[in-house]
Write a protein that binds this DNA or RNA. Sequence first.
DNA 1: TGCGGGGAAGATAACGTTGTCAAGGAGGGA
DNA 2: TCCCTCCTTGACAACGTTATCTTCCCCGCA
Lengths: 335, 335
Amino acid sequence: MLDVAALAGVGLKTVSRVVNAESGVSPTLEAKVRRAIEQLNYRRDANASMLRRLGGRTQTIGLVLEDVSNPFSSALHRAIEDSARARHVLVFAGSCDEDPHRERELIGSFRDRRVDGIIVVPASRDHTFLYQEQRAGTALVFVDRPAAHLDADGVASDNVGGSVAAVEHLLAHGHRRIAFLGDLPSIWTADERLRGYTQAIERAGIEPDGALIRTGLRDSETAGRAVHELLALPDPPTALFTSQNLLTIGGIRALRSAGLQRRIALIGFDDIGLGDIVEPAISVVAQDPQAIGRAAAEFLFRRMDGDTSESVHHVVPVRLIARGSGEIKPTERSS
Amino acid sequence: MLDVAALAGVGLKTVSRVVNAESGVSPTLEAKVRRAIEQLNYRRDANASMLRRLGGRTQTIGLVLEDVSNPFSSALHRAIEDSARARHVLVFAGSCDEDPHRERELIGSFRDRRVDGIIVVPASRDHTFLYQEQRAGTALVFVDRPAAHLDADGVASDNVGGSVAAVEHLLAHGHRRIAFLGDLPSIWTADERLRGYTQAIERAGIEPDGALIRTGLRDSETAGRAVHELLALPDPPTALFTSQNLLTIGGIRALRSAGLQRRIALIGFDDIGLGDIVEPAISVVAQDPQAIGRAAAEFLFRRMDGDTSESVHHVVPVRLIARGSGEIKPTERSS
DNA sequence: TGCGGGGAAGATAACGTTGTCAAGGAGGGA
DNA sequence: TCCCTCCTTGACAACGTTATCTTCCCCGCA
């Protein structure tokens, strides 16, 4: 900047004014400065600029995802990026793999860089450590799961409603013995989806059967094993509700290997890529990660703009997509 | 920081020393300072810190992807993030959707933030604008496609070799009429893959048939239409080589809708999720985005550490995964 | 007792930028 | 002609931190 000022033969402040498009610079000088900037390939240092500016915004936000490479996270990321770009805000993204320690570490790094706001898909069960942060003026939005012990905006899918819809869809096709496959109940979304399942079952006047409820499934392999065990029951289920991505895939593989993919109904929570190419095509309750990301970014920017109203919990609707696997009718009990 | 110094009753520099774990602070004072830091929840401002530090590194890199939410890009992203985390470096990621203008804009934003290095999946055909940047000491690595008119490190899949392998696999199963479906030939990878296809066909002593080569396909719909047209030829292909993700999906859909998914062979370039669940399972030449990302990060950090040796172009091997669709034998010509 | 050496601590300047304010010149009205 | 105003311009301090240098104190040795 000194070099630019020297080359243009003006003061530092004049260069600053040109760079910031402030009024009150004569066209002659402005042209000179612009030429010098061009010639020296000068770019203002945004960090230094923000340092000096009053209440300096870094025009930067942090994003804590479960894993930047999983489809749900990355769709979120993209939606948030698009909103941020419109405001000339850059996004730091990081994966925490459901590890609370890593979550804190990431948020710490963001804080060191003085991000203006943070969007978190929370991994830990206690976010009081963010209280200081929040009071210091960092905007905060929680996605997919609510904040624990902290008052902050949240955006999540309609987990209960979606599960109810899925189960009611199976009930409507005549199923009575519907199995539930879920992740660890300590994960909020997994628990919500189980709630929805139970609600729908009970509302239909069916006595819930504990043998049909399998939780704590962490990947497609364990889900597959669980399906095989369910099928071996004396009174096996006629339909499966796989309440998460990987479990759906495990379920499909298991049914396929048992040759039952056309006899046992299946609905998954969360869409899977290519769900329409498989035979039979997979019916799912699809989340809308774009809408979730958009909403999260919107809340974040609203807070960054100084909104101090009460915190909001926004629920994004889900959509049941019937593609075939969920519309299979129950068959006579085998042997 | 002033508050911390005041509370601990020490000078600024002492706080700085404690924060940076420099030697030469008495245990008594250090304890006092730590207590004050704890009490005030103080965190050093990394931006200000880097501003003052000599040859200041921001411990930050920029990543220009095609789209953070596509599987290839996000797998790259994750691998790079992991390498970066090990060095306490944070990653800015952005999508440019193959738009050269957006690419420049993103790189400009990165530059304003004084990132230490940039990894680019290039969209534009001219990167001379990065020359200044490179000379100013910003490390630069190009991924998936080489830099245009700029001397910089590059990492890419073995596009030619992979395509040759795919076509030779089909040849080995008896196919002679193998169609090629590709993206715009102006895209480097698309062109490389076409080169591989042509090479393998010619090496097998087969006269290339222009009618079997369909390029300029931008999405799965146009790919599907192209497949239908190919099947309608007087002398239709017995095998398809779909040289990109979306085209593979379009090809599968088209074959399925024509009821030919078990009679016409198909190999795709780049793996598709759930490729093993479809019937028949899809054979592909799989790229290794993790390895690409790791290599790119490694080169970047090496440059950041001051390596000024000649630029390197690293080729990452691909792997042919036979799952079924690529092992279908040619059938008698229909009608 | 005096002097030199070494280590701990702080004062001060500087990083690249912008906020504040004062200086200077042009122009217009009395 | 003089004075007041307005606009352009630049000098200077400050943002939060670290590099450099100085000060000061304690200890050991002659």
